[in-house]
Computed example of a mutant assay.
Amino acid sequence: MPFPDIDPVAFAIGPFAVRWYALAYLFGVLLGAGYGYLLLRNERLWHRGAPPFPAKDVWDFAFWAMLAIVVGGRAFYVLFYNLPYYSQNPLEIFNTLDGGMSYHGGMAGLMLAAILFTRSRGGNWLSSLDLLGAVATIGIFLGRLANFINAELYGAPTDAPWGVVFPTDPLQVARHPSQLYEAVLEGLVLFLVIRIATHVLYALRKPGLVAGIFAIGYALARILVEFVRLPDIQLGYLYGGWLTMGQVLSLPILLGGLILVIHAASRRENPLRP
């Protein structure tokens, strides 16, 4: 398949260019906050009818979230993906225009921001992580679509009929559109799974359960897709040539998700009780 002719720049105002990648972050936070508002307002979904903080406060948290995603995403990329380069060029750490961001870092920053924000409101911090788990798939979906538009983070060569020839590929061969795989698995499918958990199984009534489901689902999807996605060129494959940094960073998330699910499932209250 030929790569669709989509300009990475969504629009320009004079010398200022606004890219789809930046819009994906912006709308991911705004749409996530909007969906979070609806969840927070529906008190019957939550443990003892108490969401982690009032629905109106979600817009304040959206500001925290945007900062946390950028700082956490950049910090993880610098530390885990290209530390030698940034050690020699420390000022480049602040040059986020080079696109160096880590989803794992953004997730870590969001978790920390949610915990601190919720504690300042006197709410249950585990429930705030559940809220993140319920809305984060929206941002992931948009972000991976933006990766596809940027023709970055593509996969290994493939003979599959849906293989894409990316304009940034020096070899110009058909490759797995791994960005779209992740958009579907980590974004759309995981959103639907969590939606069933929150509105059919009332999983938000067991603090930590939705966060655990998200962590397990994200980690498994990321680990799976990494088998057909090319690793960052400066890192290559790790540990004998079969693991990627994305898979390594997903393992603690998988473990944390299992711990959260086990903890939540051990609670004696029945989440299905009205």
Rank of each mutant, 00 (worst) to 15 (best):
I140S: 03
D5C: 10
M245E: 05
I93K: 09
Y37N: 10
W125D: 09
V164S: 01
A136V: 15
D159V: 13
P231C: 14
Q172H: 15
G163A: 13
F11Q: 08
D159C: 08
A183Y: 06
N147R: 07
K206W: 01
L260C: 13
R19Y: 10
L180R: 04
N124R: 02
T158V: 09
A55K: 07
L129W: 01
A215L: 15
G14L: 03
M101A: 06
G72S: 08
Y103T: 14
P167L: 12
G155W: 10
S127E: 13
W59N: 09
F61R: 05
G105Q: 09
L224N: 02
A55Y: 07
Y37E: 15
I13D: 08
A113D: 06
E92H: 14
V210A: 01
A174H: 15
L238Y: 11
S120M: 10
D60M: 08
V248L: 15
V165G: 02
S120H: 10
W20S: 01
P252E: 12
S178Y: 06
E186N: 12
L39W: 02
A265H: 08
D130S: 05
P90D: 12
M101I: 15
G100L: 11
R74Q: 08
H47E: 04
F16Y: 15
Y77I: 05
A17G: 10
D60V: 08
F214I: 01
F191M: 13
I140R: 00
W64A: 14
A215F: 11
K56G: 15
L39K: 04
I69E: 01
V78D: 09
Y85K: 08
E43K: 15
L220Q: 08
G163W: 12
L126W: 13
S266L: 11
D98G: 11
L83T: 07
Y85W: 14
F227K: 14
G212L: 03
T158W: 10
R121N: 09
V173I: 13
G49Q: 00
P271I: 00
L255E: 10
D7W: 04
Y85G: 06
L190Q: 00
T158H: 08
D159P: 15
Q172V: 04
P51D: 09
N147K: 08
V248Q: 07
